Computed example of a mutant assay.
Amino acid sequence: MSLSPGDRASAELPDGHRPPPQVVIEPDTDRLVRAVAEALVARLAAAQAVHGSASVVLTGGGVGIAVLRHVAGLVAEPVREVVDWSQVDFWWGDERFVPADSDDRNERQARTALLDGLDLPGFRVHAMGASDAFATPEEAAEDYAAELREYAAEGRDLPRFDVLLLGMGPEGHTASIFPGSPAVGDERPVVAVRDCPKPPPTRVSLGFPALTSAEEVWLLVAGEEKAPAVARALAGAPRDEIPAAGVHGTRATRWLLDAAAASRLPRAED
């Protein structure tokens, strides 16, 4: 199977009873950002058509925040306005355990890029706790787990996530779950993470039970330095070695890559 730039193809990999992951490759990061932003708006509109509301889990990082900026541009075009943003719940996959006004916060970056311009009801934005509100990341994790339960259907611990966005680091980490971290084997929906190899070292992250509960998981990955980890993940690496390899959606898992990040994937002979 050829996975050339711009192609959309399914990577035929076994994954239990879940659909195999799909791989989408765009020629460069700018094209990737535009494609993801447009697809996200369409997916949230489709979710609202079915459920009346929609729910998305946001990610930080350069590509994740660039996608939100592009969504903000789409919102500014009335002809493209198809989502009732007052009926969208925004959650986070992870957060840095720093003060609420820190520029390191994924929430703060997302608000600047998109959320502050949407005039959202406050209860629709589900930010993880900051270090000036909670004494420890464990307390912040417990608080977020409680909020997830509050918005879940009766008898469940997690609400419906229509789309869960994730990035991936060069070593294969996703959300704030790093290779070899105790969080890899933690079966709680939200976990405190200490001693991360990437600063800031203390964080709060969704755990695998939450990361794998979304209807669709989209992994947004750009850059040649991430290509080896992408190839290992799609070849079925164990999640303790490449945590991103252990994340999948209940209906779809999409690896959305630029050509550089996809450069180590196997290609069929022409």
Rank of each mutant, 00 (worst) to 15 (best):
L58H: 12
R108M: 11
P170I: 02
G122C: 05
D186T: 01
W255M: 13
E147N: 06
A222R: 05
M1T: 10
G180D: 06
E225G: 01
V98I: 08
G117Q: 02
V230P: 09
L165Y: 02
R251N: 15
D7C: 09
L256A: 15
G117L: 05
E215W: 09
G6C: 12
A135R: 03
D195N: 08
A153R: 10
D195C: 03
D162F: 05
R105V: 03
T250H: 11
P5D: 00
G117D: 05
A127L: 04
G62I: 11
A46K: 13
R8I: 13
D119W: 05
V190S: 02
P179V: 02
P99W: 14
P189H: 02
G122H: 07
A146Q: 10
A261Q: 08
W91L: 08
L115Y: 04
R8L: 13
T253V: 14
G52R: 10
F123G: 03
V56I: 13
A260C: 06
F97S: 09
P182A: 00
R194Y: 07
D240C: 08
D103C: 07
K226G: 07
P200I: 06
V63L: 12
A133G: 12
G129Y: 09
R267D: 14
D15Q: 10
T202R: 00
A110I: 00
L166V: 09
E269V: 12
V125E: 13
E77P: 04
L120Y: 03
I177M: 01
G93Q: 09
A231Y: 02
L3N: 01
M168V: 03
Q22N: 14
V67R: 11
A39G: 14
Q22L: 09
A261N: 10
L115I: 07
L256W: 14
R124Y: 00
A175M: 00
D116E: 12
R232I: 00
P243Y: 08
T59Y: 11
P170S: 03
E81C: 08
D94V: 13
A76D: 15
P20Y: 04
A11D: 07
R124N: 11
V230A: 01
A130D: 06
L74V: 13
R267A: 15
R232Y: 00
G167W: 05
L164R: 01
A235V: 01
R8G: 08
V230T: 10
T212A: 00
T250S: 14
R149C: 05
V83S: 11
V50I: 10
E147S: 10
A233D: 03
G122A: 15
A42P: 06
V79F: 08
G155Q: 07
L234M: 13
R160D: 03
L44Q: 13
D132G: 04
D28S: 12
T29M: 11
